[in-house]
């Protein structure tokens, strides 16, 4: 039944910086293997500087020095057209961008060119992939905006004339106008207040369901994950430490880091103190030996500091990289349905 649109195998991407004649590798993405199905929303969660953004950069083929792909492969399958963004030529990439693979970026305030009207931006971004021009193009864009319940008058506006929420909705319109099969959403709602956030999320979800597109959805906000994603991959210090269906991860985490992450979610009416993790995430230039989480892990034993735990199946579509996966229990009683109260249909 598996029909992955994206297959990542053993991907290693390092920031290679020369410092005082010494080469330093910052292992932002280290041995990541995952698959994303057609029509699925796959969440990537993890704290700041865990390598989320670097992973996204590789997947979006936005690799710029000092970031380099050291090993592994990335494979998109756009309806039979196979492409590896880490090896493809610029011309090949230009052909798939926006047509098959689009991107919703963090910071809706600054992703639109301030001196161009929205219509001109649509023209720059979508005219070539859509292969339409003039009135036909304009009609297609208006129809699309109409469909997203956005007023077509935004086309005549400059970005600064729109509110933050409206701007992010315009960005979603821009990213979906070519009906791509795959979208990468990097913290699309982080700068918005919760009311606007909910609207933007349901818009994104509606469009995604209609088009049957896959989305990689990156955010550190676990409640957004509970609302949006079908599956989640938890990233810690450049590694994928656990992966599974969203509900399973919230109710039966099999990695102590996930258990803490889920437990950190505040619930209305629940005033119990949350168990916090000691310490900080490790330096990616010199990560700890063995399991990268072991210096902060309350369950760590001797093997954890010695050997890297493999990412192994612990249930239905559920994988965890922990030597003690069997012993992990949720830290607070599962409250997934409360967290996912909003958008999920």
């Amino acid at each position: 039944m598996s029909d992955p649109i994206l297959t990542v195998e053993g991907l290693k991407a390092y920031y290679r910086v020369g410092q005082f004649g010494k080469n330093l590798d910052i292992r932002a993405v280290d041995d990541v293997t995952m698959q994303i199905e057609r029509g699925e929303i796959y969440g990537i969660a993890g704290e700041s500087s865990s390598g989320k953004t670097s992973l996204i950069k590789v997947l979006a083929a936005a690799i710029r020095p000092p970031l380099q792909v050291i090993d592994g492969s990335v494979r998109y399958d756009f309806g039979g057209r196979i492409i590896d963004p880490t090896k493809a030529s610029k011309a090949e990439l230009a052909e798939i961008r926006w047509k098959h693979l689009s991107y919703i970026m963090q910071g809706s305030m600054s992703v639109l060119n301030p001196v161009r009207r929205i219509e001109q931006t649509f023209r720059d971004f979508a005219q070539r992939p859509l292969g339409l021009s003039g009135a036909a193009f304009r009609a297609r864009v208006e129809e699309h905006l109409d469909h997203l319940k956005l007023p077509t008058s935004v086309l005549r506006s400059y970005p600064h004339e729109l509110s933050g929420g409206m701007r992010q909705r315009v960005t979603i319109g821009l990213a979906t106008v070519c009906r791509p099969e795959f979208m990468i959403a990097d913290e699309p709602t982080t700068a918005l207040d919760v009311v606007v956030q909910k609207e933007v999320l349901s818009l994104l979800r509606t469009v995604q369901q209609e088009m049957g597109a896959s989305i990689i959805f990156v955010t550190h906000d676990m409640s957004v994950h509970a609302n949006m994603t079908d599956r989640i991959g938890i990233v810690y210090a450049g590694r994928l430490v656990e992966e599974g269906p969203t509900r399973t991860l919230f109710t039966q985490p099999k990695h102590p880091y996930t258990a803490h992450l889920v437990a950190s979610l505040p619930m209305i009416g629940d005033t119990r103190p949350r168990p916090a993790l000691e310490g900080r995430p490790p330096s990616l230039a010199d990560p700890p030996k063995g399991c990268r989480f072991h210096p902060r892990c309350p369950m760590a034993t001797e093997i954890c500091s010695r050997e890297v735990p493999p990412l192994e199946s612990v249930g239905d579509r559920h994988r965890s990289a922990c030597w003690h996966a069997d012993e992990v229990r949720p830290l607070v009683e599962p409250a997934f349905d409360k967290a996912a109260g909003g958008v999920r249909a």
Partner: peptide, 26 residues
């Protein structure tokens, strides 16, 4: 380094449009 230039690059916007309309123009 502005986001709108990165974004246009990611969207595969034509190089000349990016240099002319996004970078120089601004």
């Amino acid at each position: 380094t502005e986001d709108y230039v990165t974004y246009a690059d990611l969207a595969g916007v034509d190089r000349r449009t990016v240099v002319g309309g996004y970078v120089m123009r601004n």
